[in-house]
Amino acid sequence: MSASSSHFGPHLQHTGTEPTKARSPYRLRLVLAIGGAILFAVAAAGAFLMSDPATGVRELGVVAALLAVLAIIDAVVVARRMHREGRPRHRG
């Protein structure tokens, strides 16, 4: 085993087996982030509107709301990266 094969990072040379211009599936990630944000926002709203404070469902609503916020942040990050790389956000 060579010294460079035990390390990871951009300093490694191209071996020929990985794609040289690999791209992340930003469209899929954006769709999943938006879908997750909607799903968790609806779940949080349902938990807050239909729960009895003594049942503990509100805590699940708080968790769902936090997950919705994280999904929105992920969607914003993906949209910015798509814009920065000049990729279209939709087909057309």
Rank of each mutant, 00 (worst) to 15 (best):
A47T: 03
R58M: 08
G16I: 03
T55Q: 14
R91Y: 13
A47D: 00
I38N: 11
F8P: 00
L49E: 02
E59G: 14
R23V: 09
A33G: 08
G16K: 03
L60R: 07
A41E: 14
G61P: 06
T20V: 09
R23K: 13
V42A: 09
S2V: 04
S5Y: 03
P88G: 11
F40V: 00
E59L: 12
F8H: 13
A68K: 00
R29F: 09
H11M: 12
D74E: 11
T20F: 03
R29Q: 11
K21G: 02
T55Y: 15
G61N: 02
A3I: 15
K21W: 03
H90P: 03
L28S: 11
F48Y: 08
A71K: 01
V78N: 00
R29E: 07
A47E: 00
V42P: 02
T55K: 15
R81Y: 09
E18K: 11
A54R: 14
A64L: 01
A43P: 00
L39M: 08
L67P: 01
L32T: 12
G61C: 03
H11C: 05
G16C: 08
A79S: 06
P25R: 09
A43Y: 00
T17A: 13
I34R: 15
G56A: 10
A75S: 14
S24H: 11
V77I: 12
L70Y: 11
L66Y: 06
L30V: 07
L32V: 14
V78I: 15
A79R: 04
P10V: 05
S51V: 07
R87T: 06
M50P: 00
R80Q: 05
A64S: 07
A37W: 08
P88K: 08
R29Y: 13
A37R: 04
R81K: 13
V77G: 00
A3M: 12
A45M: 07
M1G: 08
P53W: 04
G9M: 09
A65V: 02
G46M: 03
S5G: 04
F8K: 08
G92M: 11
V77K: 04
A3H: 12
L67C: 05
S6Q: 07
K21I: 04
R81N: 14
G86L: 06
S4D: 13
I38T: 15
A43Q: 01
R91W: 10
P88N: 11
A79E: 02
L66Q: 13
A68M: 02
I38Y: 11
L12Q: 10
R23H: 12
G16S: 06
E85S: 10
V42N: 04
E85W: 01
T55M: 12
S5K: 13
A54K: 09
D52V: 13
A71I: 02
K21T: 07
G16T: 01
H90K: 14
A43W: 00
V63D: 07
G46H: 01
V77H: 07
F40E: 10
I38K: 14
A47M: 04
I34K: 15
H83W: 03
A37P: 02
D52E: 10
L39N: 12
H90T: 15
A41C: 02
Q13V: 12
T15W: 10
G36K: 06
R89G: 08
L30A: 01
P19G: 05
D52Q: 10
A44T: 05
E85A: 05
P10M: 04
H7E: 04
A44F: 01
A75M: 07
